[in-house]
Design a protein around this nucleic acid. Structure first.
Length: 383
DNA sequence: GCTGACGGGG
């Protein structure tokens, strides 16, 4: 590791940083202040690091920093670090760099700012092609201004004379799917065909996701057949969308069969495939199958994630499998990403209800020492 | 990484 990468890793690593021990009183306030100071330091470090041209190519760091600031609702600081980038004239005049800023504003939900950067591009001596148009469309989607996307798409074509490519169309399709306007989404596919833009794997995956997730199984199947006819080879994301469809139709046998067949299609099931099955069996209240599938993780070298536990642990509490729930929590509590405070609280409440006070206290205590501060993790008083 | 588009869940 070079010293630059070491410094970057230390400063911008997303793994939770160790918080110093805190006094019991004013605990959450002090944690909040600590976090705030941390983020402010991050902003300053980011700005000074930006002077290094090599730093400015680190897209992952830009991404994770902006994400952290936005999720803490520090939008002014997002603006501060992104506006700061405009002084690097060499970079800002390159469309890719500016498109990245637009997209980062979008991921922070700051569509107005994204649009402003786009409007400033001529002043920044930066060309606007389909690339930055797509960045702006993507920013509109990521800021959840779905209803604006189609209009923006038409306007940009007209004003700039930019010819949309497959990415532009996919972004508009995504917006229509998010709004539940499936007919409009399909009409965009027709439009693509008329303009000789071939729908690709992402086009189909976006549609499959939209339909299967919204319980439109029959339409999902239609799209699947269209995908096959277009000689687009489905990947794991396509299959996972289909799994969600099968599960919501309560076709668990077919879902399991499909997972079994994946290998022969040259596709490996992933954590999302397993979560779909576990969710299905939890919804069915089928403890036996949930148990069986949980055991399959190791076999497929596919570790359970946050979503697995968010489904599994409350289900176990419902089914009075408290010992198992307790052990699972104990096992993952030191890895905060894997179980959040709300889930932990469900287990604590269930334990208290069954008068397993010692275990409840143990979990609350472990939660506290592992800095579960965002949700209150505590044993309710028994009266 | 020559920088823009699928990944949802309780």
């Amino acid at each position: 590791m070079s010293s630059l990468s070491r410094l970057l890793h230390r400063t911008f690593s997303t793994s939770p940083s160790k918080t110093p021990p805190q006094p019991n009183t004013m605990e959450s306030l002090s944690a909040a202040l600590y976090k705030e100071r941390n983020l402010r330091t991050l902003v300053d470090k980011f700005k000074s690091s930006s002077d290094n041209p090599r730093f400015r190519t680190k897209t992952a760091i830009y991404d994770s920093t902006v994400r952290r600031l936005a999720s803490a609702k520090k939008f002014r600081w997002v603006k501060e670090i992104l506006e700061h980038q405009k002084q690097y004239h060499h970079d800002i005049s390159k469309e890719g760099f500016t498109a990245r800023l637009i997209s980062l504003y979008g991921k922070s939900g700051m569509f107005e700012q994204a649009h402003k950067v786009f409007d400033e591009m001529p002043d920044l001596k930066c060309d606007r092609t389909v690339k930055s148009v797509n960045a702006l469309l993507g920013a509109c989607v990521n800021s959840k201004k779905f209803h604006k996307v189609d209009m923006l798409f038409r306007e940009l074509q007209e004003k700039l004379g930019v010819k949309p490519d497959v990415i532009s169309y996919n972004t508009v399709i995504k917006a229509f799917c998010a709004m539940g306007s499936f007919d409009s989404a399909l009409s965009i596919v027709d439009e693509m065909e008329k303009k000789d833009v071939e729908p690709d794997l992402i086009t189909f995956n976006t549609l499959l996701d939209g339909f299967y997730w919204k319980g439109r199984f029959v339409d999902g199947e239609k799209i699947w057949r269209k995908m096959e006819k277009s000689n687009v080879v489905p990947d794991i994301r396509s299959y996972n969308a289909k799994l969600v469809g099968l599960v919501s139709e309560k076709k668990m046998i077919e879902a399991v069969e499909l997972v079994g067949e994946l290998g022969s299609k040259g596709v490996e099931p992933d954590v999302q495939s397993y979560n779909a099955l576990i969710r299905g069996y939890c919804k069915d209240g089928n403890l036996e199958e949930v148990k069986r599938w949980y055991g399959e993780w190791e076999k497929y070298d596919c570790a359970p994630d946050r979503a697995t536990f968010a489904t599994l642990i409350p289900f176990l509490c419902e089914k009075d499998e408290l010992d198992w729930a307790f052990e699972l929590c104990k096992g993952v509590i030191t890895r905060r990403r894997l179980v959040d405070g709300a889930v932990l609280q469900v287990v604590i409440d269930a334990l208290v209800k069954e008068s397993k006070i010692e275990e409840a206290k143990k979990l609350a205590e472990m939660g506290k020492s592992n800095n579960y501060t965002r949700y209150k993790v505590k044993v309710p008083s028994q009266d």
